[in-house]
Design a binder for these strands. Structure first.
Length: 315
DNA sequence: CAGGTACCCTGGCCGC
DNA sequence: TGCGGCCAGGGTACCT
């Protein structure tokens, strides 16, 4: 459930169930779902990307995670871009508070289940929690492709404000729905860059939460060709782009996110409806909803881009 | 800073 | 029915 609307649906869904709950037990079924968890995690948060775990290293990582997460109390879930975390009662050796960090990657899910419910497909980590009001529940992390992961990570003051963020999300910009998002800074940066706007929208250090689906939708809405260079976007058009971004995110959020199959669901396993509202993404050959011209597909940076060749002219 | 590629994975679908 | 190739919502490292 990858992009901002989907991650936000998950965050909001987890909130009432986990806030104030105590983790009674943890079971790691597949250590590859701890890609971002370092054995002494939280003290300096380098992810273990691209590293295949040996069996021994995987077992050690699982044991470390299970031991350190069991018994902690969870706070209210927070999010920055596509990173989701739950502050905990635990602290790192440095004294910094630890958070349970989740990134859903391409196919990750956080599922709330009865404590003794049968497993869903691809469950990698299980956590049994006890909530003072809601009793015993289970939080399952399921992930078909294992690009996502859970981790314990230290919280530090963000570079762009007083709020605390996990070290692994320190480089992530605020998202456009964040009240503290700096519009002027984003617009100025966008208009100094030589890259195409599609690539810029996907750059999580410029603006967070945008993935391949919503980038295409936003560019369609703002009538911008995905390869238009940032420096070629005028001030009015740049504002139009940011406005379109907020509108698309708000609508997708209201519709529960985008689900193409059972893979992308909220904490109760239910799909969102925004797939019915897509105007560009995945619509190669279908008529543009504005002008009827067939939507075209283009590969940018190894990923599909969908756009209307008539409404979104290259300039 | 910009671009390209490779990699971390599973699984659905299509053509042969 | 099998198999190879391509595709998929993300992020990072490492080249040029």
């Amino acid at each position: 459930m990858p992009e901002l609307p989907e991650v936000e649906v998950v965050r909001a869904g987890l909130a009432p169930a986990v806030t104030g709950a105590r983790v009674a037990a943890v079971q790691v079924l597949d250590p590859r779902a701890l890609k971002r968890h370092l054995p002494t995690a939280g003290d300096d948060g380098l992810g273990g990307h691209g590293v295949t775990l040996t069996a021994a290293a995987g077992a050690a990582r699982s044991a470390d995670f299970e031991r350190r997460v069991a018994g902690i109390t969870l706070g209210a879930p927070e999010r920055r871009g596509k990173f989701l975390w739950i502050p905990t009662s635990a602290a790192a050796v440095s004294g910094e508070p630890l958070a349970l960090l989740a990134h859903l990657g391409m196919s990750g899910q956080m599922l709330l289940r009865a404590h003794d419910a049968d497993d869903d497909r691809h469950v990698r980590i299980r956590m049994w929690i006890e909530h003072p009001d809601h009793g015993e529940l289970r939080v399952d992390f399921a992930d078909q492709r294992l690009f996502g992961s859970l981790a314990l990570d230290a919280l530090r003051p963000a570079a762009d404000g007083p709020d605390l963020v996990p070290t692994q999300a320190a480089h992530i910009a605020r998202d456009p729905l964040d009240p503290a998002f700096d519009d002027a800074r984003f617009l100025a940066l966008l208009r100094t860059r030589a890259s195409g706007v599609k690539k810029l929208l996907l750059d999580q250090t410029l603006v967070s939460g945008v993935g391949n689906i919503y980038a295409d939708e936003v560019l369609w809405r703002a009538r911008l060709h995905p390869e238009t260079r940032g420096v070629r976007v005028g001030p009015r058009k740049a504002v139009e782009l940011l406005t379109a971004l907020r509108a698309v995110f708000a609508q997708a959020l209201a519709e529960g996110g985008t689900s193409f199959d059972a893979q992308y669901v909220n904490v109760n396993g239910q799909a969102g409806y925004f797939a019915h509202s897509l105007n560009a993404y995945g619509r190669t050959g279908a008529p543009c909803a504005r002008c009827g011209e067939p939507i075209r597909r283009l590969v940018i940076g190894g990923r599909s881009s969908h756009f209307c060749p008539r409404c979104q002219r290259r300039r």
